[in-house]
């Protein structure tokens, strides 16, 4: 079986799209251009690492602005998760991330004084199709933005008659109509990246992972609790499976921050949580062959 694939960089990682349908070179080139331009547009809108992004502009302007067409899905999700987690999952963590050193220059040195992020109510007036940012804040969609872009690219591929494909955004994956029926995917050992701790079989769904192992600086990793201003250490990695990569991506971060039952009451997803002593918890629907024993 020939696999057509192409790669590009976006959302701070390397993306690979594999197309299993037989497609001509011309079609592949067209798809590749469409996908790359979609990814670029996404970053122009939502990246906190780009000073010229729409999201940074509206934070500077602090005026009522019209939201981009695709903003509703992600703002609704962040608003609802803010509510059900009592503000522990918040896009306003962006301000703290910059203070703590995870800024667009990667200074990685925390400022002397660190502040709790403001509340949603004090900072954001969200009323689709309008939004107004009321203080000098940094909105960060890092916990689910990549998943959302996976969903957007998935729809773009389908709209262009591509039906059998895999999107791999640096370890967050969506697979559609895999030719073997189910795709075999390893679960990376966060303590030894040349190893896996298990294997799952996936089709027409997304698996996303979060772990504190790669983006570390000072005493932080990329998931920070806004109430304690610290990064969780009892969980070392999470994997989540959902129909939507947006949901899977958001849940993989949320599991570090709040109890799983809060999330399971609100969203359909399966999970595997790996703790620092290598014991684990998983939902019954997380069908994996695990090399771990509790």
């Amino acid at each position: 079986m020939d696999i057509n694939n192409f790669t590009f960089e976006a959302t701070g990682t390397v993306w690979q799209i594999d197309i299993y349908d037989p497609v001509s070179k011309k079609i592949k080139a067209k798809i590749s251009d469409l996908v790359k331009s979609e990814a670029d547009n996404f970053e122009k809108k939502y990246s906190r690492f780009r000073d010229d992004s729409w999201l940074r502009k509206i934070s500077r302007l602090r005026q009522k602005s019209k939201l981009p067409k695709d903003a509703k899905t992600i703002f609704d999700l962040y608003q609802n998760l803010y509510k059900i987690t009592n503000g522990i999952f918040t896009p306003l963590i962006g301000s703290f991330m910059e203070e703590s050193g995870y800024d667009s220059n990667y200074s990685l040195i925390p400022k002397i004084s660190l502040h709790h992020p403001p509340t949603w109510k004090n900072a954001i007036e969200y009323n689709y199709p309008y939004i107004q940012i009321k203080q000098n804040v940094v909105i960060d969609f890092g916990a689910a933005g990549k998943g959302y872009l996976i969903d957007i690219i998935k729809n773009l591929l389908k709209d262009n008659q591509i039906n059998s494909f895999c999107i791999d955004a640096g370890g967050d994956i969506y697979v559609n109509n895999h030719p073997t029926g189910k795709m075999q995917i390893g679960l990376e050992n966060p303590k030894n990246l040349s190893e896996v701790i298990g294997i799952i079989y996936l089709n027409n769904a997304s698996i996303c992972a979060s772990s504190g192992n790669r983006r570390r600086w000072d005493k932080f990793h990329h998931i920070i609790n806004p109430q304690t201003l610290s990064s969780p250490t009892d969980i070392i990695a999470t994997w989540t499976i959902a129909q939507s990569a947006l949901i899977a991506d958001a849940m993989s971060t949320c599991l570090f921050l709040v109890d799983k039952s809060i999330l399971q009451n609100a969203y359909n997803f399966d999970y595997l949580i790996l703790k620092k002593d290598f014991s684990f918890e998983k939902s019954s629907g997380f069908e994996a062959e695990l090399f771990l024993k509790n």
Partner: peptide, 8 residues
Amino acid sequence: KVAGSSLT
């Protein structure tokens, strides 16, 4: 394919 943390 391996599901894990993003390449830094």
